[in-house]
Amino acid sequence: MEEKFEPKIAAFVCNWCTYTGADLAGTSRLKQEANARLIRVPCTGRIDPVFIIKAFENGADGVLISGCHPGDCHYNAGNFHARRRWILFKNLLDFIGIDSSRLYFSWVSASEGKKWVDIVDGVIDAVRIKGPFKQYKKMNKEIEIPVAVEEGVSVK
């Protein structure tokens, strides 16, 4: 029996806008799919690309990053700095051959609950079509418990 694939999405969201926007979506009782795990950060400028790498390492099939619209940053310029970093990071992923289309970016303000729902659902649907991120999961081969061992007797 083949299990239906449910993607895991790690969503890094800014405390001041998208997180509040997602909250608004909840209080407005808007329906959204439950595959995205929200990680609240103080600003998109706080997101080090190593977070994205770590998310993929730990089994994320897609990563969504969302923050304040340009000009709306609580700290004035955090999102501008972040945007510059992502341009470089996406180019690097492309050059190495990692599917950078599994990385999604959006600007969602505190009042855009509906936009948040649309974006999350869109990302989840897109990743569901792409399937599991096998490229990256393969890299865990040395760290995974070998199947032969797991089926045998475990030592305590």
């Binding site: 418990i145 070998p146 032969a148 061992v149 797991e150 045998g152 475990s154 030592v155 305590k156």
Partner: peptide
């Protein structure tokens, strides 16, 4: 609990 496994 935590299960421990020896490598092959």
């Amino acid at each position: 609990n935590v299960d421990l496994f020896d490598p092959i």
